[in-house]
Design a protein around this nucleic acid. Structure first.
Length: 423
RNA sequence: CGGGCUGUGGCGCAGUUGGUAGCGCGCUUCGUUCGGGACGAAGAGGCCGUGAGUUCGAAUCUCGCCAGCCCGACCA
């Protein structure tokens, strides 16, 4: 992609009202645009990152044999009355049609997925199964804040599993927990699965996934050695106590909640009366679990975790592009032509090799301005083609998380890139 | 929803005791530059958040409303 064709732009000055790193750099770098408090447009750069994160999530859910669907955000009041959540869930957006019918905007999808599953569950032979979607959620938060970390409209992957018995639910729950840890580690994050309260979802077992970063809002009592952790909301232990699992010291740390999983039991299948016929011909209640990952929040958590004073430093797995190619100008028109044709053929060669490249081909801007944009946007690898590199038959190579630049012979560039991207 | 701060070109800001709006960045054109946000010249762009009031006259004073942000309560 050529930078000069991009309609969205970076900004030299950070927004004045940014309260945290993700709000600052995502807006300044042209990843998102704020429409109102807690509501953002995802611009080309930002959407590429969001899609990468969501594809990682999608791949890992597919490994669990969960099947992707897409459910409506517009939901009838009756479903929410059935679960007695129409009045009790205060963050629910409620709207009226022209004919005065009441609807909810989906804050979560138990009210849709449970009656949906009912239509397909008759016998124990239809179970177990899991289904998920990646969709927009609406929550009427009293106070939206912290950039994309707490919005009123946000992206979320939500998965629901259906089982004949508790052992089976527990087994899937445990596998989902491991999948979640894999998703977060593929996004480059250090995440702990901590015991938590079920909130509006359930009184049963639940885990939160906390990305450990000083920018976090949640306080976690976490073992410094093993995976053990508890949300301080429900913690029975204190800082300095010994870990009940491994004996290590417990610390109080901050985290951003990027996911959660709940054992729902029969809460929703009771409400909608979802039964199956077992091997003995008896009617039994279906058991459910639900599993969420805030994908737009996850993007924010990644920015909070990986940045410096110049901008974002994306992990390779979620960067908007793999390569940021920069061509520099010269006073000599012939050199400019050579630089541009070299950069252009490198750009085409990379794209045809399936490597995502952003080429800053702008001719009316200084080298310094281009480099500042590279740092702000945070693509892992910068390549420069200029009069200098042309003389050496080389391309300059600089990684975003390193201060050093080196020259690579042009003939070796593609291979070097491929091995860099594999590492 | 309580308490506070702030609304002035795309972004960041200034605007004195009320007299009809300015700076930096960005943008356009021309020329010069060409490896860490270049320089000169000439331009374009604003119902000063919004409504009412006070006044000969309001960006400026008064009141209401709206929006953004912060603290709190609440929450993925």
């Amino acid at each position: 992609m050529k930078y000069s064709k991009l309609f969205s732009k970076t900004n030299k000055t950070a927004p004045a009202d940014a309260d945290c790193i993700n709000a600052k750099y995502l807006v300044q770098g042209g990843f998102v645009d704020q429409e109102m408090a807690g509501v953002y447009t995802w611009l080309p750069f930002g959407l590429r990152v969001l899609h990468k994160v969501e594809n990682i999530v999608r791949e890992e859910m597919n490994v669990l044999d969960a099947q992707e669907i897409f459910m409506p955000c517009l939901q009838p009041r009756e479903y929410w009355e059935t679960t007695k959540r129409w009045d009790s869930v205060d963050i629910l957006f409620k709207i009226k049609s022209q004919t005065e019918k009441d609807y909810a905007l989906g804050a979560t999808h138990e009210e849709v997925v449970t009656p949906l599953a009912q239509k397909f569950i008759q016998s124990y032979k239809d179970l177990p199964f899991a289904t998920y979607q990646i969709n927009t959620k609406f929550r009427d938060e009293l106070r939206a804040k912290s950039g994309v970390l707490r919005g009123r409209e946000f992206r979320m992957k939500d998965m629901y599993s259906f089982h004949t018995n508790l052992e089976d639910l527990n087994e899937f729950y445990a596998r989902a927990l491991q999948s979640y840890l894999k998703v977060f580690s593929r996004c480059g994050l250090q995440v702990k699965a901590v015991e938590a309260s079920g909130g509006i979802f359930t009184q049963n077992q639940s885990h939160e996934f906390q990305a450990l970063t000083s920018a976090g809002e949640d306080l976690i009592i976490a073992c410094e050695k093993c995976e053990f952790g508890q949300n301080s909301e429900v913690a029975t232990l204190n800082e300095g106590d010994k870990c009940p699992k491994c004996g290590g010291v417990l610390n109080k740390v901050k985290g951003i909640e990027v996911g959660n999983i709940f054992n729902l039991g029969t809460k929703y299948t009771d409400a909608f009366d979802v039964n199956f016929t077992d091997e003995n011909g008896e009617q039994k209640k279906v058991l459910m679990g639900c599993y969420g990952i805030g994908t737009s929040r996850l993007v924010g958590a990644i920015v909070e975790t990986f940045s410096d004073d110049k901008g974002i430093i994306w992990p390779k797995s979620v960067a908007p592009f793999q390569i940021h190619l920069v061509s520099l100008g010269s006073k000599d028109a012939t050199v400019v032509e050579q630089v541009n044709s070299t950069a252009s053929s490198l750009h085409d060669e990379l794209e045809s090799a399936g490597i995502e490249v952003l080429w800053d081909d702008r001719s009316d801007i200084s080298a310094g301005a281009k480099f500042a944009d590279v740092d702000l946007i945070g693509i892992p690898l910068r390549l420069v083609v200029s009069e200098k590199t042309l003389r050496e038959n080389s391309v300059e190579w600089k990684e975003r998380n390193s201060a050093e630049a080196k020259l690579i012979l042009s003939v070796d560039v593609i291979e070097s890139i491929k091995s860099f991207l594999r590492s």
